[in-house]
Design a protein around this nucleic acid. Structure first.
Lengths: 355, 355
DNA sequence: ATGAAAGCGCTAACAG
DNA sequence: CTGTTAGCGCTTTCAT
């Protein structure tokens, strides 16, 4: 036995260790190394297998994923295309998707289309070039050209309703929005404004419909609407505009957390008290909504369920076609609507060390 | 000419279009297709090239990245290992890294180690298997075992100071912390607490040193310290603990935005007025810090500079070795320290449509 | 200016 | 149980 523990000879040529290096050192054929690495398709004598594993360790062998993908024609990898990777909602969604995929032994490659159709085209090409086994889309353009790529299984993961012939996943947005707006109304609010985006996920946006439904069911007139980007800045501008447009406003429903958080800043700046003067609620329920001031009452999307569902749908895409998976939102009551807010959801006071 | 516009025959076998399909259709050899795709290494007659391009379009040809990587031995891809991909700081950092890499024609593969050394090991193996040309680490474990993989260029991207023989990038954290704490003191604060993490980036953490320096320079005694996780929950717990530990506290410096945001919620809940009763500042300067209430005064890290520097360092890693790139932080004054806060940084009021 | 062909590292028949 | 080998799609040297 050589004494070189870590197995890599410094200053040596850069070529990486291959399967045949391992085979040579273990005194077997390269096929056997393959059988050991993949635990099949043929059995290997335990004694031999051990020799091979030792050789792999010694040489620091890592199988070449490109070669494997080339040979197998599949990569155990999924592609994810997002329209805005800085939005905490998609950040959390991505995290859950990666987790769900990992549980099924799959990796995820992420691309941010930056809301641009042409950038997105490039990303999809790249993902296809990398031979992803499936594609997940959280992007406005998806429904259009994704139709051309039907040779690769595709799921639209931020989709408000079924689309014929497509696999889709989404929250029950209309019902969720209606529930949270109804809750606002139950606090005695009668003039509820809406902050919503323009090129959202559906037309009219189901969150807008939910807001209308709640108002109508309570016999209230529709409040003013501000259409702004789905961003903190958008919400900030919207709140300012709405406040000056309609002084009788006593509540606000925002179509995502980001807009609500922007609105809160505008409100706080002007000394409008939330919830006393104006109640606020939003749709999404990201972590950030729990730590705003005041903490936001939200229709919370169940991301781990959505994510697991999306991955499952992709897995079974051979057999399933044209299915829509809908997950209910959860009404989370916090301070911004006027409910009593009992502190954060998962305290960790035990972890404090004060000196 | 066939009339089938999109070029893909539905119901046909799944095998994807290869270079030789294109070659056949264009009536050239596969080598020529390669020359056209790569614009070299041999010139191609313009007429021939056009025929090839037409064939590619017609067939919807996308080069197979695995085959190319296998042949070339490189992937034009970088690996990024993060300890917590949900932290907005790393989210923004990642975004900038992807942008900087894209500008140089490189992709980035991201892995989240979830603060676990063993998970991280798996991620690195996966990245190595995928033949990344370089590795970026924003993770506590990096400095240890990354030493074994010196055959692949590596940059530590969240590193407070030089490490012999390693490429490192980081903000001037000690100076930045000192500047922002000094600023707190300039508002007349004399009892400044510290909220900091445990297994941070350096020991003692440079942010802690900066805080001490500022206090010492002003002839003030060190305030109380709370050691908590680098999370919103951690900051929440820390503020509660510190408040009850030391009622004379009139300022707080948090080692990251997340902790400060958690602290703000605890303070707001208790009716402690910020900044009147207690000033707050933090380190990082993510977007979230601009939209908290009150907005946070921060030592802001210059992520686009750090990211561009990190990518450059990796590019030149052949020639450069053991370099540390340090970028200054920027003091951003907002309401939480007692400064007048003039509204958000990039308003977009022009984008509002009110109905 | 273009074609033929070797070979990157791996998997999976097939043959012992 | 293990060895031999063809070939995945691509790049590139060597011919032509």
């Amino acid at each position: 036995m050589a004494t070189s523990g870590s197995g890599h000879i410094p200053g040596e040529t850069r070529r990486s260790v291959t399967r045949s290096d391992v085979a040579k050192l273990a005194g077997v054929s390269s096929a056997v190394v393959s059988y050991v690495v993949n635990d099949g398709p043929r059995p290997v004598a335990e004694k031999t297998a051990k020799r091979v594993r030792d050789a792999m360790d010694k040489l620091g062998y890592v199988p070449n994923a490109s070669a494997r993908a080339l040979r197998r024609g599949k990569t155990e990898t999924l592609g994810l295309v997002i329209g805005d990777s800085l939005n905490p909602f998609f950040v959390q969604y991505t995290f859950e998707l990666v987790t769900a995929a990992a549980a099924r032994g799959k990796q995820i490659l992420i691309g941010d289309s930056r809301q641009s159709a042409s950038v997105e085209k490039g990303i999809v090409d790249e993902l296809v070039a990398r031979q992803v086994d499936g594609l997940l889309f959280a992007s406005p353009f998806a429904r259009h050209y994704a139709a051309e790529l039907l040779d690769i299984p595709t799921v639209l993961i931020d989709c408000p309703g079924p689309i014929p012939g497509r696999l889709t996943v989404g929250s029950a947005a209309e019902a969720g929005a209606e529930e949270v707006v109804t809750h606002l109304i139950s606090h005695g609010r009668t003039r509820v404004g809406l902050v919503i985006g323009d090129h959202g996920f559906g037309n009219p946006d189901p969150r807008e419909r939910g807001w209308r439904n709640a108002l109508a069911a309570a016999g209230l007139a529709a409040g003013p609407i501000a259409r702004v980007p789905f961003s903190r800045e958008g919400g900030y501008a919207a709140a300012k505009a709405l406040l000056c447009e309609d002084p009788s406003l006593d509540a606000l429903f925002a179509s995502n957390d980001l807009q609500a958080i922007g609105a809160l800043r505008a409100l706080n700046e002007r000394g409008v008290r939330v919830p006393e003067d104006l109640a606020v609620a939003s749709f999404d329920g990201t972590k950030e909504s729990e730590f705003s001031w005041p903490p936001l009452t939200v229709a919370q999307q169940q991301l781990s369920l959505l994510a697991a569902g999306a991955i499952d749908l992709l897995e079974d895409s051979e057999t399933t076609m044209g299915k829509h998976l809908e997950i209910d939102t959860i009404l989370v009551r916090r301070r911004s609507c006027g409910c009593d807010d009992g502190g954060i959801d998962h305290p960790s006071a035990d972890l404090v060390a004060v000196i």
